[in-house]
Amino acid sequence: MKKLIFSLAILALAVVACQPNSDDVVPNQEATTIDMSDFYVYTYSDLEKPSRDAKNNKCQTMKVLNRQLKEDPGLENRMFDIEKHTRTYIYFKGKPKNPGGGGGGTTPTPTPTPYIGTITIPVVVNILEDPAHPVTQAHIDSQIAILNADFNNNNPNTDGVPSEFADLVADTEITFTLAAINRKASITSEWGTRDAMKLVSEGGIDATDPTNYLNIWVCEIGGGILGYAQFPGGTLATDGVVIGSDYFGENAAGGVYGHGRTTTHEVGHWLNLRHIWGDGRCRQDDFVADTPSSDGANYGCPSYPTVNCKSNDMTMNYMDYVDDNCMYMFSNGQNDRMRAIFATEGPRESFVQ
């Protein structure tokens, strides 16, 4: 009996000893788990029927990504890590470093340090010249001006954004400057989408230091294709965007796609944005919380509201497929994704170091 009483006394002392003193600082034990269960890289884009209609072939980025994933076994893992870094950045955005207070809080997941202020991206324009599709200095200058207007919320058409989305329009504070122009005569009528225009060995122009410059190749892609881009995580030698000659800058030859927004769209991909409909059905997302779900691209100049997946589409978003003059906003959530890649250990951190 005495042994039992003694044992109970020891247990009581242990319980009391484990209780925190009211004056002690208790570390925050909240575990931070970044949910990656919805992450995807492969899409259904390869199942689409080929077309020479620019409307249907506006952007080939996801088809190019599917090809790159097959050719580069490590790309999916690199993109997974970049997405986890991005989600971690967004999760901790605006949160205190030690949420437990008193200096005792802990952060189980390393917190990316954001880059604050304007980001300046120098641009190298690589032109594979086709006399039938000239790219003039005026085209180049207008394209840089369009990029700066679009990424700094100075597109004049933004005044037409519906009230539903008015509070979501972002100024990304990303500025583009023309660093260099490389020209090379070309007799290739269609360069395709296998990155030949990016390699001297294939008759193209090699990239200029992709860790510090955005490379844009302007050429005749062919097949009615307007452009394509490479997501962060891809091979450095092919990093950048490709734009069809008629769709670069203010260019009458481009028709409804001749006002420079193909480049804005493709640079969005280069900055880690997906198509606004997620390249799937209603449940496949673009990883952005404030863009409505949709099940496909919009074309032309849609009226508002355009309803899909039981919500109004943000058809005026640069990452949709509408006519150039009918796209005029990035969302705050998209801005968070773009800013994340410049944060500590982000895939484009070198641009702000």
Rank of each mutant, 00 (worst) to 15 (best):
G160S: 15
G223C: 09
Q230N: 10
P134E: 03
R52K: 01
D195C: 15
A9L: 13
S186V: 13
Y40L: 03
P210W: 07
T43I: 01
F287H: 03
P122N: 06
T118R: 01
E83A: 10
R339F: 10
N272A: 12
S293Q: 01
T306D: 04
C301N: 09
V256N: 13
D35P: 14
V135I: 07
A54P: 12
V288K: 01
S22D: 04
G258A: 06
I121S: 03
R337G: 06
F231E: 01
P50F: 00
A17P: 05
P27L: 12
V123P: 06
E164G: 09
R274W: 15
N325T: 13
N251P: 14
N298Y: 06
V256F: 09
T118H: 06
M329L: 07
I205F: 11
V218L: 13
K49W: 00
H275P: 10
P162D: 05
P134R: 02
V169H: 13
L199D: 02
S303C: 07
P27C: 13
L273C: 11
H259A: 02
V16P: 08
E349C: 10
K63E: 08
S7C: 06
T211V: 02
N308I: 02
T107C: 14
G204W: 02
I181Q: 12
Q19F: 09
C326M: 12
D285H: 07
D150H: 04
S37K: 08
C282R: 05
H85N: 08
I116K: 12
G160I: 14
L65Q: 01
T136F: 04
N272Y: 06
N317D: 15
N332A: 15
V41T: 05
T107P: 15
A253Q: 14
S245K: 10
L236W: 01
Y213L: 07
P108N: 13
D320E: 07
S245P: 09
I121C: 00
V267M: 12
E250L: 14
I216D: 03
Q284T: 04
Y44V: 00
P347Y: 07
Q334K: 11
N312Y: 02
A289W: 01
D209A: 12
I82K: 05
P156K: 09
S331F: 14
G280E: 01
V123T: 03
Q230G: 06
R261L: 15
T263V: 11
N154G: 13
N298A: 11
G268V: 13
E202M: 08
G278E: 01
N157P: 15
E164M: 13
I216M: 10
L11P: 11
E83I: 04
E164P: 13
